[in-house]
Amino acid sequence: MTKSRSLSDIILNVYIGFFFLYLFAPLLVMSLAAFNAYDYPSVTQWKGWTLKWFGELANDDRILKGIANSIIVALGVIVLSLPLGLAGAFVLTRLEGRYNNLLYALLVSPLLMPGIILGISTLIFWGRFNVPGGLLLTIIAQSSFIASYSMLMFMARLQRQDRVLEEAALDLGASNFMVFRRITIPFLMPTIITAAVIAFLQSIENYNTTVFAIGGDWTLVTEIGSRFRFGLSPVINVIGVIFVIFTVIAASLYVLQKEKERQRKLATA
């Protein structure tokens, strides 16, 4: 970067400043309202600092049940979508011929489709077999696109796989199953962990698909969604604050980890 402070540099810096203001100001407003004693979420009608909304959250049974449901769904999504994504990645990386592109397009299509469509099609399809909306259907609907995410991650990893190792193991008399368990799975382990974390976060966060598949049940997010219609209170802001705190902690840990790695690399170099 050149040191010259030209007009365009200043404009760009101002622009970036505004951009981050656009990103963070709303979060600040939302977090602040969680500590306001006023009954309706607000930062302008300030009635003094309070922590009572945190206490209300702890006593809010529907929200607590929603959190439990969200975690059940997220775990179910991990269990269902990771094997599907992995299987799809294996088939796609080894399948030759012109069907490869078609299969690829079909398997990533859930990512290119609006979330509500995935929820609706799942609801209609399973409705024919008398499976009503609920947690199970939510797991299935969410997995249809989260599996695509994991598949793309596994494919990226498998493309860097050195097949010589597997060949060597086979030549030395290892069984196919042993090769898979002792060579392929350890090689994929970092991706399996990342994919599980991403699947978990995607599932917890999802609203557009879930709202169609959830039926009479609810997750944390659909419960928040229905509160916008009935009973908006600063309890929602408290949930926001908790999300913010978790995210900032996770992000800082991630940065620290990266920094440590960098320093270690510098030390060994």
């Binding site: 599907l84 799809g88 088939v91 392929t184």
Partner: peptide, 28 residues
Amino acid sequence: SYGKPLTSLFVCLTAFWLLVMIALPQAF
């Protein structure tokens, strides 16, 4: 690399995903 049982498992899982979770719901 993985033998017939594992390969068919992969193919079956992929087919399940493709048909039961993507194509058939759309068709329905």
